[in-house]
Amino acid sequence: MGSFDFMLPYYGDVGQMQDAVRSVLAQTDRDFRLVVIDDGGEPEVPGWFEGLGDPRVRYLRNERNLGITKNFQKCVELSEADHVVIMGCDDLLRPHYLETVRAILGAHPGIGMVQPGVEVIDGSGRVARGLTDAAKRWMFAPRVKGRALMAGEELAASVLRGNWLYFPSITWRGPALRRVNFRDGYSVLLDLALVVDLLEAGERMVIDGTTTVFQYRRHADSESSVQAVSGTRFTESERYFSAVAERMEARGWPRAARAARLRYGSRLHALRMLPGALGRGHRAGVRTLARHAFAAGRASGRG
C-alpha cells in the first residue's frame, strides 16, 4: 500500500540512536526506507551505518549543525514516500508498527495523520508513568475505544487545550506533510503548529486505541525539559498561542480560539516546572513560568 519513509533527525546519544535504528530494521513489514539525517559530529557514526549494509537505509551528515527546526524541515524535504514518520532518535518502534499502521491506512484511504498506540519509557528503557503523561491521558486526550476519526475544529480545540499527541509516533500523509512542513521560529512547539496547520488544510486524523506499537522516550534532560525549567519554552508558547488564537477566530473556529487563549495544558506544565526553577534559583525562569501559568487566564474572556 504505497511507499513508506522513516525519517530520523539525529543529534545526541549514539547508543539510543542505534537502538532506534534497530527497531526500524526489525519491522515485520520490511517494505520501507529509513533516512537518517545526522546533525551531530560523533566520529564513529558514519562507519556504523556503513557497516549495516542494508540498502533500505540512507545516512546523511549535515555539513554544519542546522538545529532542531531546520533539521526537521530537511527531513520533510528529503522524504519521498506516500507516508512518512519523523521519529525521535531515542524512541523505539515495536516490530508490528508498520504492519499496524498500514492496516489503518487501508481502512481509511486518504487519511492525513495516524496517531497509533504509544507507551512511554524513561532514559533506561523502562515503562514510565509520570505526571505529564497521566495529565495527557486523563485530562486532555479524547476517550477512544478502538479507533476514532477526528478533524477540523474538534481536533484543533482538543490539542490546543492540551497537546496529548505523541508527535514522533505519528504517520503523516507524505504529500500533505511536504506541502505544509514545519513553521520557522519554533523549536519546542513545532509539532503542535504542524498538526494545527494540517487541520486547517483539511487533513484528518485516526487515533488508534487498540494496539501499542511505539515507545516514546521521556527523560529529564531533553531539549524541551531544559527549556521548560529556564522558562524559554513558555516564551515561545505565549507567542504561538496568541497568534493561533487570532487565526482560529478569523477561521470561524471559536472553540479552538478559546482553547488557544486558555492553553490549559501549557499552563499546567508551567506550574509543574515552577518548583524546579525555584529550587535551582533560576529567577528569570520563575518569573516567566509564573506569568505563563497565572496571567493566561486574563485572556480567556474572548471566544
Results as ranks from 00 to 15, higher is better:
A201W: 14
R179A: 15
G185S: 08
M205C: 11
E236C: 02
G252T: 06
R217A: 04
A260S: 07
V195F: 12
T210V: 03
V196Q: 12
A220F: 11
G185A: 08
M205V: 05
F234S: 01
T211C: 06
R239H: 04
E203F: 09
Q215F: 14
F182N: 01
F214V: 01
D184G: 06
E203S: 06
A176R: 14
R233G: 01
R258W: 08
L177V: 04
F241I: 00
T210K: 10
F234C: 00
T232M: 08
V229F: 04
E223F: 14
L199H: 12
R183A: 15
E203P: 09
N181F: 10
W253F: 13
G231I: 01
A228T: 08
E200M: 15
Q215P: 02
M248N: 03
E238A: 04
A260P: 04
G231D: 03
L199F: 12
V213M: 06
V226D: 00
A256H: 09
D191P: 12
A257K: 06
I207N: 07
Q215Y: 14
R247T: 10
L199N: 12
E203A: 02
V213W: 11
A256V: 03
L190E: 15
E203K: 02
W253H: 11
R258V: 01
V180D: 05
A243Q: 12
D208E: 06
S187V: 15
V244K: 00
S242M: 01
E249H: 10
V196P: 07
